[in-house]
Amino acid sequence: MKVVPTLAKGLRLEAEDASDWELLRYIIYDATMASRDLAESLNCTAQETDAADDWREYVMPDLREAFQEDLAIVAAAVETAIHHAKGEAGPLWIQAEQSFLWYSALNQARLSIEDVHHFATVDEFSEDWLDFSNSSDLLGFFRRNQFYGVLQTLLLEYVM
């Protein structure tokens, strides 16, 4: 896959084959695989107060809805691009005004992967460093996590 900044301050993702489209489909899969509630996990305020109850009742539902909407829009954009390209090589544009929701979807995927695999907190110089030799699944998660991070960096540098 190639990622190219556009003159309209967006990004163009150029899928080169079906496996690149699968990689983009994985954003949604990875973002939704962990069982934790993102809206809940972001809240670090003391939980035993009345204010915390109000927060749970009034604020968190809106956050959950917004996060799910971001994923739904990204999923639709990916499926539309795959349809136009007939599953083969083809482009997917991320417009400047959609950059935040793409960033959000990628972040949800990385947060979810981190919840399950803790890549960011493993010391790469320790003996416990990840052993991919027996798990292609783990390697897949690791590589996708890296890809999502690179895409986020490009969004920050060229679009947002």
Partner: peptide
């Protein structure tokens, strides 16, 4: 609320 909407951990 804005910080949470941007997926940053925050408290009051």
């Amino acid at each position: 609320q804005q910080l949470h909407a941007h997926q940053l951990k925050a408290s009051l």
